[in-house]
């Protein structure tokens, strides 16, 4: 057991070491990513500011009862998650389709290592790291401005809920990517998911009731950004925090079970 953990840890180090080596060749890409991040963040902040009354000079409750700095916390969490998906999720999960299409999934399945681990952690892209940093800074800075006290308990809770939202995002994405075993072109479905997740830029209460239900129960956007942001602001309720963990655990188990199921299909039907 212990040796197995060591083997996985060593493998992960090798995975990411090789991934970084491969990407240093493209400094230009890194520059473009940086510019894109700055542009996107500026644009998002600008659009957000539109809701806070350019005429009335910062009317307190522009979006669903969230003040300007509070809404910026949500945007910070969104930026952070976007950075995580550029760093870890997109580079790995978008490759699953290619593995299925080109038949190189066979190589992965023949390795004495968990195939979901291989497919989910095979590579890492440093391009999203600045976005993670900026997202964290925005989240905490805006939180302080909103008057929250960032003590150890708050920070620990924030960390746990961020982890849980990352896992939800990962599991959702992996579930979609898994369907590539049957439908080769799932890339478009991923785009739909990404487009819908853009809703996480704003607190969930900023939406009309119908959309709010949709974004909580069907597509858990609320758990992705609003719940961690509430934690930063020190006002997340116990049930919501627990629900977030529950949703994360549920989606994670579901993604695992679904992958196993899909593999059974793959190994009994592929030619």
């Amino acid at each position: 057991m212990a040796s197995d953990w060591r083997r996985y840890a060593r493998t992960l180090r090798r995975f990411w070491g090789t991934a970084l080596a491969g990407q240093l060749e493209y400094q230009l890409n890194l520059l473009i990513e940086l510019l894109a991040m700055v542009g996107n963040l500026a644009g998002s902040l600008f659009v957000l500011s539109l809701f806070y009354g350019n005429s009335s000079g910062g009317a307190g409750t522009g979006l669903g009862g969230w003040s300007w700095p509070e809404a910026m916390v949500v945007l910070g969490v969104y930026t952070l998650l976007d950075g995580v998906s550029s760093t870890l999720l997109r580079p790995n999960l978008s490759r699953i389709v290619t593995h299925v299409q080109e038949g190189t999934l066979d190589f992965v399945l023949l390795k004495p290592i968990d195939s979901q681990f291989w497919l989910s952690a095979r590579t890492v892209s440093p391009a999203g790291l600045p976005e993670i940093a900026v997202g964290l800074a925005l989240m905490l800075g805006a939180g302080l401005k909103a008057g929250t006290r960032l003590d150890a308990t708050t920070l620990a809770l924030v960390a746990v809920l961020l982890l849980s939202s990352t896992l939800i995002l990962y599991a959702l994405w992996f579930l979609l990517a898994t369907t590539s075993i049957w439908f080769v072109k799932t890339w478009n479905a991923t785009e739909v998911l990404r487009a819908a997740l853009a809703a996480g830029r704003y607190p969930i209460t900023a939406y009309p009731a119908g959309l709010r239900t949709l974004f909580t129960l069907v597509l858990p956007v609320a758990f992705l950004t609003t719940v961690p942001a509430e934690a930063v602001l020190g006002r997340v309720s116990g049930p919501w925090a627990l629900a977030s963990l529950g949703v994360a655990a549920g989606f994670l188990l579901l993604s695992r079970a679904f992958w196993r199921f899909a593999l059974r299909f793959y190994t009994s039907a592929s030619s």
């Binding site: 083997r7 060593r10 493998t11 180090r13 070491g17 090789t18 491969g22 390795k111 004495p112």
Partner: peptide, 19 residues
């Protein structure tokens, strides 16, 4: 093998995977 990298890198990955 990883297309953009020297074979040695892929070999190291496999070494880790096979312990």
């Amino acid at each position: 093998l990883i297309w953009d990298l020297p074979p040695l890198d892929s070999l190291r990955v496999n070494a880790a995977v096979y312990g």
